[in-house]
Amino acid sequence: MPHAPELILSLERIAAKIRIDVIKMIAKAGTGHPGGSLSATDVMTALYFHHMRHDPKNPKWEERDRFVLSKGHVCPALYSAMAESGYFPVSELMTLRQLGTRLQGHPAMQYLPGLEITTGSLGQGLSAGLGMALAARVGKKEWRVYCMMGDGENDEGQIWEAAMAAGHFKTDNLTAILDRNSLQIDGCTENVMCLDPIADKWRAFGWNVIEIDGHSMEAIMDALDLATTVKGKPTIIIAKTVKGKGVSFMENNAEWHGKAPNKEQTEIALKELEAQAAKLGVEVSKED
């Protein structure tokens, strides 16, 4: 079923806000990972603000859908999605990576309710997601599990162990999202460690594969819906994205993988993101 244009627009507005949060948080912390946060923003927005069944006021609600951020370094986008959807005050975002914060540099479930598992060491999230998906099966529960991975992260052998197992166990309540921004730290994924034909690889492991433009809210929503209808196999959504999406000088630039913008760069970045937000009709508060 097609989604109402108003719904799509409202999600695009939220994504625009999250991108602004991401830059503000990382600039304030003076450290963090902007590139992969900005590429992952649209998918996370669709999940947290429409697709997933969850209750920010009751993060332990048993029936909730689970989200696993396997590429834990992009937690600024996740923290923002959580705060903007009501898990904790938006003002807390500015404590990112600082001593005493619940917003650890990599997501730590023991610090912040709403995080389903602790990640940051790449390659481990999909296995945990599979465990959650199988737990639903054992407990005759309806919850679904969503796991976002990086494409560089697909270098890790454990990802393929989990992929094989999920295919084997036919976990159709598990949806993986591959943030296919084609960059990792040392450069282009295809130069560092060739991944393509990545869709064929996942298919060969028993997965249903959907390839989309990861910045098209409509395509994201359709793919997430479609994934829930596929029976007998897990689905992976390969979301083609732009690392650093929305900030011109960060886009497609590996240098912005894990670096905070300085004051000047922050101003430029925010100006660009605020212009995009304004175009979508978002009122951007000036004070913080």
């Binding site: 912390a29 450290t31 963090g32 990576r97 600082q98 650890q104 540099g105 990599h106 990640t119 940051g120």
Partner: peptide, 8 residues
């Protein structure tokens, strides 16, 4: 290592 936290 600092801000990256315990995982690192």
């Amino acid at each position: 290592v600092g801000p990256d936290g315990a995982t690192h």
